[in-house]
Design a protein around this nucleic acid. Structure first.
Lengths: 184, 184
DNA sequence: TTTATTCGGGAACGACCATTCCCTATTATC
DNA sequence: GATAATAGGGAATGGTCGTTCCCGAATAAA
């Protein structure tokens, strides 16, 4: 069941919501039409389930990237690095479902819109938390505004996924090196 | 003709490519089905024409924003401010066709993909040019890497459009204030 | 063994999609 | 004034979409 959802997730990430047909879904999930409709109310429900799963997986990746850092500043650096890596190559081309949903559905589908908003807020709070952590442990100067900086960093991460989807090469070290100036 | 294209542009920006039907297009353009197919080979051609128009209009806006600055650094600040404003409110919710195309089509449609890439590159070069201009006139320190900084700023601008589509409030002054640290 | 029950598969259906075709005004040409 | 050419409008078409319905096999209950 979770593995079927992973396969659906991949198709939604690659093609977006409207461009993936039930036929694409059944082919990817290796399930017949009837079986999909036994497990989910409709296409929208499959998408929502895939979205939840994606968010959970990504959250885990981000937390574990943060855990690799030795203080607030370093944790934030690892998080940004992880974002750049996720935005590159095959994974980058596959795209981010949050970004995709924001762009394709947010304005039209209020349910998806709410989930997207919630996820952006969660990420923003997580980053702001890391900044405050860095300020507490002395690795980030106290005059940095945690909220404003976190919001800008969210823009950076979302933008990375857009640029990565367009196949522009992204050099993690250099890009993150520049971005860390925001903590000066 | 250009006004019909503007109306098509609006629909494509709001709904994306796949979610706008020929019916939506004819309704928005106030043209019958046959007339649309007289003027354009197919839906894809309408989209491409709308894309070209959008890019041209946006380019003009960005250049005029830059012209409001008194030196390289100030011109860049005005460009960023203009991006934040475009990403807010009704215009923000309407979305950016370049971002939308990158996310929805870039991976699947090589023609659109090429145009998106070209546009991102153009924007990046423009920003890099402003940075070098600022370094020449003394408003930006010479040790700033123009290319890396420009690429990161492209991520910021693209990310702003994503976040704006999700209706998160964006404070131009504050956000740009933080972003200008990248020029330190 | 017989009978219920579940579950995956896939044909069938109505709606809507992009596209084509044709008709009718309107304009330009002679 | 007659005729050719053009442009807009909209009905018709073939295909595909999302969804429903029903069938057959496998399992559980009796």
């Amino acid at each position: 069941m979770d593995i079927a959802l992973d396969r659906a997730l991949r198709v939604f990430r690659e093609r977006g919501y409207h461009a993936t047909s039930i036929g694409d879904l059944t082919a990817a999930m290796r399930l017949a039409t009837g079986s999909v409709y036994k497990a989910f109310r409709d296409k929208h429900a499959v998408f929502l389930a895939a979205f939840e799963r994606y968010v959970a997986l990504r959250q885990e990746q981000t937390r574990s990237a943060a855990a690799r850092g030795k203080n607030g500043r370093d944790r934030l650096r690892h998080v940004l690095l992880s974002y750049v890596e996720q935005s590159q190559g095959i994974e980058g081309r596959r795209g981010c479902l949050v970004v995709g949903s924001a762009v394709e559905l947010s304005a039209v589908d209020s349910v998806v819109g709410a989930r997207v908003n919630a996820q952006l807020k969660t990420n923003e709070n997580f980053i702001a938390g890391l900044i405050r952590e860095g300020q507490a442990d002395g690795s980030i100067p106290g005059h940095v505004d945690a909220d404003d900086t976190a919001r800008l960093m969210i823009c950076i991460t979302q933008g990375l996924r857009v640029v990565g989807k367009a196949r522009l090469p992204l050099d993690g070290k250099r890009l993150v090196g520049v971005a860390m100036k925001l903590l000066a």
